[in-house]
Design a binder for these strands. Sequence first.
DNA 1: CACCTGATGTCAGCCACTGTCATCAAGTAG
DNA 2: CTACTTGATGACAGTGGCTGACATCAGGTG
Lengths: 187, 187
Amino acid sequence: MGRWEPNARGRLERAALDLYLERGFEQTTVAEIAGRAGLTERTFFRYFADKREVLFWGSAALQEHLVDAVAGAPDCLAPIDVIAGAVEVAGERMQERREGARRRQAVIVANAELRERELIKLANLSAALAGALRERGVDDPAASLAAEAGIAVFKIAFQRWIDDDDRDLTSLIRESFGDLKAVTAGT
Amino acid sequence: MGRWEPNARGRLERAALDLYLERGFEQTTVAEIAGRAGLTERTFFRYFADKREVLFWGSAALQEHLVDAVAGAPDCLAPIDVIAGAVEVAGERMQERREGARRRQAVIVANAELRERELIKLANLSAALAGALRERGVDDPAASLAAEAGIAVFKIAFQRWIDDDDRDLTSLIRESFGDLKAVTAGT
DNA sequence: CACCTGATGTCAGCCACTGTCATCAAGTAG
DNA sequence: CTACTTGATGACAGTGGCTGACATCAGGTG
């Protein structure tokens, strides 16, 4: 057995989510989170840049996955369809963890600072997707627009998935991409 | 003459922008901003909810303007064209203050916390536009998608306007809406 | 003249976050 | 087996964003 209990990062993530749900984000101090995880405040800040980041640490893996999906898509697809495919893949990954996603989202929507952090994560994701499209030879502004549109669709589909018990995220994403095409077709 | 120098809010806004440009956002303390404006730190926080908000106070007026433009658009227009018209109106308002917009944007892009705040302001704007569309009888998800798409276009056009000396914001917005239609048309 | 109002100042305090140094089990070299 | 190194953690002091509570005081009002 090691000198310390294993998985300090995981213990901190869990303690943080539990406390944010119990008393709310603002009413929870970092010292409390660390205490529940059997660590000190200083150690919390060695794992996470700030009090918000503990809820978003997993987003890096998601981003990597999406970028890979864009890079590996068939050459024949149009940019928006490459993005749609990647977003659907991400949706499938989330599908399995619906209750976890709900708990996390409940914390985020209840606090403006956390919504800000979520938005910048999505903006980073959009920038990464646009970069991956450019790697495939798609020029700007088409690359940026396709990525931004894809993230917009994801946001809306995700929201509907959280709100509605009966719908499947992948199909909501597919449907929302269809809605987007209809909307942007205009008059 | 009043008991105090007039326009405390304006003095704080100006002092903050100047200091953020001179030394950077993080290297500036609220006490310094207040001092330069001839006020105290406590008074700063009576005008602005936090150190970031001082750069975004004007966004409420912009949002109101855009919502009015959506509400007042001709009935015959498709939702995406209503949004496009409103965004163009906003673009025209900014056109006149290009150098100011550049200075402000230089501060924002240099700091992650400020980018977060900008993103949530744009998200609020998107939500307000979607609400204004629903008032016109447009259902979700079309209303939300049109609003999100409009904001995405604005972000990209604004970025190009800041980067490129020679282009006119209104025409960039119009062009980017055209690009979006082409992109979302897909295969 | 007494009173009220509203913008500001003063002060104490919480807590997020950081820099620095100490600690100490486990691995590694000799 | 011993000495040295390493890496995760703790301890502690300090900065600064932000808040609550109360004081101040010029000008308006009755």
